[in-house]
Amino acid sequence: MSAAAPYAALSPDVVLAAVDAAGSWSDGRLLALNSYENRVFQVGLEDGGVVVAKFYRPGRWSDAAIAEEHAFAIELAAAELPMVAPLVIDGQTLLRHEGYRYALYPRRGGRAPSLESRDQLEWLGRLLARIHAVGSRERFVARTTLDRATMIQAPMRAALGSDLLPAHLFDAYRHAAGRVDDAVAQRFEAVGPVRQLRLHGDCHPGNVLWTDAGPHFVDLDDARTGPAVQDLWMLAGDEPMMDALLEGYGQFRDFDPGELALIPALRAMRQVHYAGWIAERWHDPAFPAAFPFAAEARWWEQHIADLHEIADDLF
């Protein structure tokens, strides 16, 4: 497979053959699901069932890091938490076919949560507290930490090393991103040490599916070590929503209110990471099609202006 087009050889036939190789005979039904970092497909089975096949982006995570993702999901499911965990096939969850690493998951439907509902927010808060209670039992070894090196400095290097960033904006971007890095460092230093634990890592509303029986969580692809507030702020659009989440959270686990001061820094880190992620993945044909605005100088000009505003607010 080519580094410039890592999924070029992942044809429908290869996807179906991978499912067959795992012992789940496909019936030819195949639906591509929304995913940019990996490739995810819903595959129909001859027995009438359905599985979800997730093909990991080559080179992104080590086998050990993927194994930790799977083990965490299985640990959460074993604790009777509504986490969709990979299927175990002949004692393995990480499978291989035609050079690709993949995993199979049961299909779990649902709709987006109603984050305007205080009851639903409290429910999510209770579940996140229980997820964090499990997450605090052990430590990740192979997976990354939510820190400046991972979320600012590496994406910054990717943007600076990409032809996507207009040459005449190179110095302006470097200065703006550097200011954010300094401001985030100061905010973390001001808050002081906070407890680190295994997190979902990307707990936005799209990774929570609601059914008549309640919610379930999907996609631990960005699971990493960090502060508990990371899994809360992405679900809370304002202070009343955060209050509702914490009301539920506090029923199962103590929360350090000092972590709330990290939210602006965590939001800033995510914004720097977003631009660097697009720049790093621009060789993947899916990215220019999905993010055409990133090829325009005016988008980078606005991004630079946003970074300065973020830094000003943090200092």
Rank of each mutant, 00 (worst) to 15 (best):
131 I>M: 14
234 M>E: 07
247 E>F: 05
113 P>H: 10
133 A>W: 10
193 P>S: 14
12 P>N: 12
58 P>I: 05
315 F>K: 09
294 A>G: 07
91 G>A: 04
171 D>C: 04
255 F>R: 10
168 H>V: 01
171 D>P: 00
75 E>G: 04
166 P>R: 01
102 Y>G: 07
178 G>Q: 06
34 N>W: 00
184 V>P: 01
152 I>Y: 04
178 G>V: 00
296 E>R: 15
296 E>I: 06
73 A>T: 05
202 D>G: 09
112 A>D: 09
142 A>Y: 09
212 D>L: 03
131 I>F: 14
63 D>F: 01
80 E>V: 12
167 A>Q: 13
116 E>Y: 02
229 V>E: 02
165 L>M: 12
122 E>R: 15
209 L>A: 10
27 D>L: 12
204 H>F: 14
97 H>A: 06
247 E>H: 11
162 S>P: 05
250 G>T: 09
200 H>Q: 11
71 A>F: 00
82 P>L: 05
60 R>E: 09
257 P>V: 10
77 A>M: 03
188 F>M: 12
315 F>W: 15
159 A>F: 09
39 R>K: 12
113 P>I: 07
46 E>T: 15
248 G>V: 11
196 Q>A: 10
101 R>T: 02
297 A>F: 09
20 D>E: 15
299 W>I: 00
265 A>S: 14
151 M>T: 04
282 W>P: 13
297 A>Y: 13
307 L>C: 06
313 D>G: 15
74 I>M: 06
94 L>P: 07
99 G>E: 02
206 G>D: 08
46 E>Y: 02
104 L>G: 01
20 D>C: 10
60 R>P: 06
142 A>I: 13
273 H>Q: 13
124 L>M: 06
313 D>W: 11
194 V>Q: 03
125 G>D: 07
203 C>F: 14
172 A>D: 13
239 E>N: 06
230 Q>E: 06
205 P>Y: 03
177 A>Y: 01
249 Y>M: 12
32 A>H: 13
25 W>E: 08
174 R>P: 08
305 A>F: 06
261 A>F: 05
109 G>Y: 05
208 V>K: 06
300 W>F: 14
122 E>K: 05
93 T>V: 01
302 Q>A: 08
116 E>G: 15
260 L>M: 05
72 F>Y: 13
87 L>Q: 13
64 A>F: 01
300 W>N: 02
36 Y>E: 12
106 P>K: 08
80 E>T: 10
24 S>H: 13
193 P>K: 10
268 A>C: 06
220 L>P: 01
132 H>S: 09
239 E>I: 08
39 R>C: 00
92 Q>A: 11
133 A>R: 15
136 S>R: 14
113 P>V: 13
197 L>G: 15
302 Q>H: 14
168 H>I: 00
248 G>M: 05
30 L>C: 04
213 A>D: 12
294 A>R: 06
287 F>I: 15
220 L>F: 12
66 I>G: 00
304 I>E: 03
96 R>Q: 14
154 A>V: 07
185 A>H: 08
237 G>L: 11
100 Y>R: 01
54 K>W: 02
124 L>I: 11
162 S>K: 05
227 P>W: 03
257 P>A: 08
13 D>K: 09
208 V>D: 03
284 D>M: 02
300 W>S: 10
215 P>N: 11
160 L>Y: 02
283 H>N: 10
51 V>N: 04
215 P>W: 10
